[in-house]
Design a binder for these strands. Sequence first.
DNA 1: GCCATGGCTAGTA
DNA 2: GCCATGGCTAGTA
Length: 107
Amino acid sequence: MQTFTEKALTVMKSIPPGKIMTYGQVAATAGSPRAARQVTRILHSMSAKYNLPWHRIVNAQGQIVLQNEESRLFQRTSLLREGVEVDGNDRIDLNRFRFDPMADEES
DNA sequence: GCCATGGCTAGTA
DNA sequence: GCCATGGCTAGTA
C-alpha cells in the first residue's frame, strides 16, 4: 500500500509537458479528493528534492497562485515554453490544457 | 503546526 | 473573507 504522498508524487510526475493539473485534481487522483492542501505542502517542501514539475500545477480556477513574484514569473515562463497559453492574469484555460490521467488513452 | 486549497457566504455596487 | 480539510521525505534527540 502506497502512502498518499507517494501516490501524489507519482501523479504529479505523470503530467506531460504542455499540460497542467489542479491541486485538488492531483489530490483526487491520488485517492483523497479533499487533500488539496496536503498537495501544496508536498510541493512546498519536496519540489526541489524530487524534481517535481511543480509549475504544471495550478489552482481550481486555472490560475497561477504563487505569492513570490520571482517564482510566479518562472512558473509562467516554464508553462509558456511548454506550449501552455497563459493570459495576462496568469490564467490558463483548463478546458484546453488540463491533463486528465483517468482519460489517458494510449494506443 | 504546516500549507502554493476550495467552496461557500456576506456585504457592497 | 472565512474556515474545514488532511496527511505528514524534516529536523532534533
